Amino acid sequence: MLTITQFTSPKLIREILAQRNFAPRKSLGQNFLVDGNILDKIANAAELDPSDRVLEIGPGLGALTAKLLERAGLVVAVEYDRGLYSILQEQFGEAANLRLNHQDFMEFDLGRLSGAATASGTGRWKVVANLPYYITTPAIFKLVESEIAWAAMVFLVQKEVALRMTAEPGGKDYGALTVMLNYYGRVERVAPVPKTVFYPAPQVDSAIVRIRPVADPEHRRLYPYLHRVVQAAFGQRRKTVLNALQSVAGDKEAGGAILESLGIDPGRRGETLDGEEFAALARALRERDSRP
């Protein structure tokens, strides 16, 4: 098994990869974190204890995996690349608390985690991942829309994504991802991560982001309506909220009536609405649909 020193040494990583004729693939966002302090910050942000179960997406060479295995009762890791999966098998084959999967995460059945939980007999599920850019948004939405009651999610993402996740209404970074995540839970930027701590170094800096889900039964019931409203509002950012809402409400008159009842100016743009206003629109649509 590799030591943490080897995991964080670009020279040794190059040697390990060369021995296996493996080259990092830019198309899959294969930039390996080589800084022990940042690895600790990610693991610390997850606030793990031995009763926790962790889902890790894209473990790569396993630097973060090693940290998670030390702290959590069970780690379920999903790796798409066959070459990296083989390396992970070599390094962690004897780890009793690791369940390693060779699969595209977007095709991974999250329902399988229930079986892993029963077998492990441990507690809360948390997500920890150095997310490749090309699947960042769909992967996060897949997790949020699942039936699993996550205790926390900690992601290492590109800086621009972190800015979108924590943006304020009216700004250029504010969008569908911002609204949906901040309705789902409390989102915070934990720490910046410079591009120099990766091998190979990417073009941009990154950041560690933590999401603490809000335990509210209404969230699950309202989510489909909120999703429709948000997608309509940000599908064409120059549309007024009235024009955007008509596709969801059925027609402009119905949309106008909902906006009037909530005191929302129909001439506003979607990107000026805050999370509470989006939730109010979703709630009004749900109540309308539930009437006999």
Rank of each mutant, 00 (worst) to 15 (best):
M153A: 15
V229H: 02
R210F: 07
A167N: 13
H227V: 00
N182H: 06
G175M: 12
P202N: 05
L177C: 05
T178S: 15
I208W: 08
T136C: 12
D216P: 08
P217E: 00
I148P: 08
I135F: 06
V197C: 14
A151K: 10
M165I: 01
V193Q: 11
Q203Y: 06
M165F: 01
P217G: 00
R228F: 01
H227N: 09
K159S: 10
I211A: 09
P224D: 02
W150N: 10
K142T: 11
R210D: 12
P200E: 01
A167Q: 13
P138C: 13
V197A: 10
P192S: 06
Y134A: 13
Y174T: 00
M153Q: 15
K172P: 11
I135Y: 03
Y183L: 13
Y184R: 09
G175D: 10
Y225Q: 09
D205H: 14
R228V: 00
L181F: 00
A149Y: 07
Y174V: 01
L222V: 06
P202D: 02
K142N: 09
E168C: 06
I140G: 03
V209N: 11
G171Y: 01
W150K: 10
L143Q: 04
T137E: 08
Y184P: 10
D205W: 05
V161W: 03
T166V: 03
K142M: 08
F141A: 12
W150A: 12
G185M: 08
A191W: 09
G175E: 09
P192F: 00
P138G: 13
P194G: 03
L181K: 01
V154G: 03
R220H: 06
V190Q: 10
V161T: 12
G185S: 11
V161K: 12
V204F: 03
M153I: 13
V157S: 04
I211K: 07
P192R: 04
Y225D: 07
M180A: 12
V190Y: 08
K142R: 15
A139C: 14
L181M: 13
H227E: 06
I148G: 09
P213H: 01
Y223G: 05
K142E: 09
A162S: 14
P217K: 00
D205R: 08
A167Y: 11
T137W: 04
A162I: 04
R189M: 15
L226P: 03
P192A: 06
R186T: 14
